[in-house]
Design a protein around this nucleic acid. Structure first.
Lengths: 339, 339
DNA sequence: CGGCGATGGTTACCCGCTTCATATGAGCTC
DNA sequence: GAGCTCATATGAAGCGGGTAACCATCGCCG
């Protein structure tokens, strides 16, 4: 079954291929009446221009790429990416741009994919996630001169544009809040040590702790899984003296931590306060409900997509600061039991 | 900065464009020595053939599409899709095929996108999820004659190939297990009523209940969110007599249900047994750990991708039955308290 | 009435790759 | 050495659009 092409439309409308192209793309060169006739015929045939032919001719594919480099095991448990993706999609689909997604467990492969995608002109640009310290992808993308937006920053971006939020501000707010409640021994169950935002939060915690006079701040690094969150929590709660508050870098680990507290007979929030990073519906389903740092992840993705589209439209590459995440206190935080 | 094309490679290697093409694609027509020389030059230039030009010429894009039509709100909470996607990717990336993803909240838009993708030749085929009863997408894809694989079945597929597992068998096993424990009043908090697998499970529950002599089986339909799972649980546990066991169609709702039981002072598993559908690490982080129906979702996605690739390679369209999900009993199921 | 600028439309070439038809020449056979 | 076959390589035609350059009308003005 032969497929419909621009030539078929031209023939059916009694005009040349060129006229069809002009009509379709809203360019001058055809009268309003002819344009309408052509569009009607196209509609009737259900014709859309071949993306390959169009891409070949004008060099644009209408596709953005995104590579997620996390083990499958940790991907499923985090709602972050799915929310991010739906935010990106909401922006893109309004402009008929599509998202090419790659999931890999290998950083070399991710780099190779950027190279290949660009060499093949498979995408117009990419959205980069999980910015790391000394991230080799930054240099690669600069070298390739490939349009992109990094979700993360403002540090470690090189000359690349980023979309980021003020992690320092909210981290400080969390520490100050816990200090104000009376906590003096606070721990943090962090995520992957070499992600930029992990170290930004770490630095902010240290600075804020200094300022409010917390001297006993412990950090444990994990891979974001519930297992490691549980293990870290057990270790922390087995110390003497043990922390009276723990901040988790994602909700899964916070849930696991709550479970461990139950298991060890430690009452939350009476004996232990818990704060989850990245709020999710899950945080409100538990007892007690988890105090959490909340941000609109979908909007975040949407902004990144918008920035990238602007860049592709010729705008100067600029970074974008998103709204600052907010701490939402719920039932899992309270003043510590009298020492 | 002009980009490298096949002509540059041909010139540099001192051969014709045709020879480069043959060498690259492993076709006869060039000697081994020439082939090696050409490939070396290509490697050195970092050249990859333009996907657009290739697609235009041979009609294949090397891209598969997938559309997820769920509200963003419910997408994030379910690990299902992310796991599915990583499984699909694992299969695809081994063959340098990419996945085009669209997230929409609108069924009309999903249908329109299939039409557009196919008319534009943007994808070689699609993976279809969330099969519904009387699903209009089936007729559309049949009409378009667009290569596809449906995740779901074996019913309601029309002539389309599907990848599915024996939901009836595992559902029956769950009911029989609960009956064997001594439960007589069992409830099910189901997902979206018009999804095929929801009704398949419903029918299987009814049949099995009949067979083992459970007469009191209630089903409540939800949108998979924790909120609705909690609400449904509250309603069920407020009845007199109330069910002694509840089966949930996803893990999020099971977690919510556990929370409600806590809230109402109902002991799990002593007074209420809970079974979650689709196991996840989360199920093991709670106390008690949730008994769950487990399946390898990533493998499921991988199989779907494989089937579709086979079809694209000219294989006859055939359905594929995946391994049957297994019930994994944990701490949330026990014999009911003596009535 | 000739010349001029709009307006509306056509033609032909280009984008980068695959592939078919064709050419060249080496190695054989009779 | 003429005639074949086989292996290797080239040239050119298309794939389906975009667009620059060109052409035909027509109305208008001097």
């Amino acid at each position: 079954m032969k497929r419909v092409t621009i030539a078929d439309i031209a023939r059916a409308a009694g005009v040349s291929k060129g006229a069809v192209s002009y009509a379709l793309n809203g360019r001058p060169g055809v009268s309003e009446e002819t344009r309408r006739r052509i569009l009607a015929v196209a509609e009737q045939f259900g014709w859309h221009p071949s993306s390959a032919a169009r891409a070949l001719s004008d060099g644009r594919t209408g596709v953005l790429g995104m590579i997620v480099d996390r083990p499958a095991r940790t991907l499923g448990i985090e709602s972050f990416f799915m929310q991010l993706i739906s935010g990106i999609e909401a922006t893109l689909s309004a402009r008929d741009v599509s998202l090419l997604l790659q999931v890999t467990e290998d950083r070399e492969r991710e780099m190779a994919t950027y190279r290949r995608w660009w060499a093949q002109r498979r995408v117009d640009g990419v959205i980069v996630v999980d910015l790391r310290r000394d991230d080799p992808r930054v240099a690669l993308l600069e070298e390739l001169n490939m349009p992109c937006v990094v979700i993360g920053g403002p540090h470690g971006l090189g000359t690349l544009p980023g979309v980021w939020s003020d992690e320092v501000a909210v981290t400080t707010a969390v520490v100050e809040y816990l200090a104000a409640l009376g906590h003096r021994r606070v721990a943090r169950v962090a995520g992957l040590a070499d992600l930029w935002h992990t170290s930004v939060r770490g630095q902010a915690v240290a600075d804020a702790a200094d300022r409010v006079g917390l001297t006993d701040v412990t950090t444990v690094y994990t891979d974001y899984t519930g297992e490691e969150g549980a293990r870290a929590t057990r270790a922390l709660l087995s110390r003497r003296p043990s922390p009276t508050a723990i901040v988790y870098d994602n909700d899964t680990m916070a849930v696991a931590g709550l479970g461990v507290a139950h298991e060890m007979g430690i009452a939350v929030p009476q004996q232990l306060s818990i704060v989850a990073w990245d709020d999710s519906p899950l945080c409100q389903l538990l007892h007690p409900q988890l105090s959490a740092v909340s941000r609109d992840i979908a909007a975040y993705g949407g902004h990144a997509a918008e920035q990238l589209l602007k860049i592709l439209d010729g705008a100067e590459t600029r970074s974008f600061q998103d709204t600052t995440p907010q701490l939402i206190p719920r039932g899992s935080t309270a003043p510590p039991a009298a020492a």
